[in-house]
Amino acid sequence: MADALIIGEAAGGAPASAALECIAAARSLGVERVHALLTGPAAAAAAPGAIAGGADAVYTAADAEELDAQLDAAQAAAAQSGARYVLGAKTLAGRDVMPRLAFRLGTALASDCSSVALDGEGRLIATRPVYGGAAEAAVACLGDPAVASLRPKSVDPLPPDASRSGETTPLAFEANVRTRTLERVEEAGEGVRMENARVVVSGGRGLGGPEPFENELRELADMLGGAVGASRAACDAGWVPAGYQVGLTGKTVTPDLYVAVGISGASQHMAGCGNAKTLVAINKDAGANIFKEARFGVAGDWRKVLPAFIEQLHELMG
């Protein structure tokens, strides 16, 4: 039987949720042991969380903060674990670390997978959206190890089991950092963080300018305790900051309710919101692709539909 290794980060004393998702995916393969690498200053404190979440052995790399160092740590963990399968998440760091790791291990990365499984020969079968979600590909990974990255929130973490045990080892590795971070600047958005929001209200090209984001969309989001998002077109037009972008190259959100206003529903956008529990679309163009994806749709001018919708909600919710 083979082992799996997951590459993850620790944040605030716990494994990042993406790391726990990878552990769950690795467990679902039915491998013998799941090794987990946790990077970042909180790695040691987060180790028990990774074990409770399904890991059998944890390597910690507290000083692996720069991407180059995370990569060197991942390479060392791959060698030490002898894992047949290496999984990571397509997080900000994972976007850089996982492809480079795959090349260093003599293969390429199955990137941005929505699910992974083993076939009868023990090959890792990765399913992934391609062409911005317009098609779905299933590939067998032929590398040894097989290396794949998971799209965040495509697998649920396991319920934590505090009775599980496992060893935690500080990882010995040599970091060769060449790309150095000089400064990091937070450009704070308003209100609730989109990634955790139960409701996301997004606007697109059809809104025609920045004002509706500040007015109608913000009002609706605030009323529902949600966050405001946007399509790439709205961000590129400069109506809202880049951090608002939902989609393949923006954020992936999985709210209970996603309201898309004036968004055509290009596959690049759907890649970021397609897993919302309920999708509601308001768009002037009755033929827009978004109506093929939505649970509820209103074909009409948002300037008329949205204020009436908000007013009715106010009444309903007191």
Binding site: V280, I282, F296, V298, V305, P307, F309
Partner: peptide, 13 residues
């Protein structure tokens, strides 16, 4: 009207 559709959407949800 478009306004009525907006109100009905709220009621359906």
């Amino acid at each position: 009207s478009e306004e009525e559709a907006g109100r009905k959407l709220a009621l359906r949800l």
